[in-house]
């Protein structure tokens, strides 16, 4: 138990070397586990669908066509998600990005959850207050958020399958207004919270928002839906480029 003092960091939880713990082998094993679970699920569901297919006039060719259509149509969106994920690698590390942004969750919710969690510890993601402890709590918040979605699915799906009238008869006006208000309220508050941090935060935010607006407008005007899929990735890349140009030589010195 007697370790030389030099080997023991004085305050390990104050380290801002996020990548040291973000690439922990156990996290990589968990990523492999999530990949594995999805593969197992897909295999079981494919087999079940193939067994049931003949009874509903679905030929082997139909199954093949469906599988191929799903695969081909997912290429664009998957690459778009990968671009967003790569942009977040520096902040969260590969295992967290793969399991949170790539799978289960999505960039919008998970980045928000991480930001909220960091805020609850009085820290900000990415700057000097972003310690290993903050990363661990932020990663926990993202994961528990995703877990709650799955829990809701696990509880609600069997109820809905039974056709529970009570759940379906929730006031439609409330169902239309409350969730939309919650989402826009959450993202506008999270977005505006970034602004007082520095003028470069303002610049990154405004440029990225403008690029997203342009992407969505062009997608609608020109009927190009790939612009909608790639909007987030394009906005992040252009927003970060603007930030890099604005910071200029000051950075890294």
């Amino acid at each position: 138990m007697h370790q030389p003092l030099a080997l023991q960091p004085l305050a390990p939880n104050d380290s801002t070397d996020i990548m040291a713990i973000a690439n922990n082998p156990v996290l990589w094993i968990c990523v492999a586990g999530v990949f594995g679970v999805i593969i197992i699920q897909s295999v079981i569901f494919m087999k079940a669908a193939r067994r049931a297919a003949p009874s509903v006039d679905m030929s082997t060719q139909d199954i093949k066509t469906s599988f191929r259509s799903g695969a081909v149509s997912a290429i664009g969106p998957s690459l778009a998600v990968s671009l967003v994920a790569i942009a977040l690698l520096g902040l969260f590390g590969a295992p967290a990005v793969l399991s949170r942004i790539g799978l289960i969750g999505s960039a919008a919710y998970d980045v928000s959850a991480a930001g909220i969690a960091a805020g609850s510890m009085g820290a900000k993601l990415g700057d000097a207050s972003y310690t290993q402890s903050v990363f661990a709590v932020a990663f926990f918040a993202m994961s528990i958020g995703g877990a709650m979605w799955m829990l809701a699915t696990l509880i609600l799906t069997p109820l809905l399958r039974k056709g529970d009238a009570k759940i379906r008869s929730v006031n439609p006006a409330a169902m239309a207004i409350v969730p939309a208000a919650a989402l826009i309220g959450a993202f506008s508050c999270l977005g505006l919270t970034e602004l007082p941090k520095s003028s470069i935060h303002v610049l990154s935010f405004v440029v990225s928002a403008a690029v997203m607006g342009a992407c969505l407008l062009l997608a609608k005007k020109l009927g190009k839906s790939w612009l909608r899929e790639w909007g987030l990735g394009i906005s992040i890349v252009i927003g970060l480029s603007a930030a890099y140009l604005a910071v200029g030589p000051a950075v890294g010195s």
């Binding site: 990415g126 990154s204 997203m212």
Partner: peptide, 20 residues
Amino acid sequence: LLVTRLYVLPTVLGAVLVQA
């Protein structure tokens, strides 16, 4: 990498807010 870490959050949130 440093610029990415510092400013990726406002870029994500700016775009996501418009999307929402």
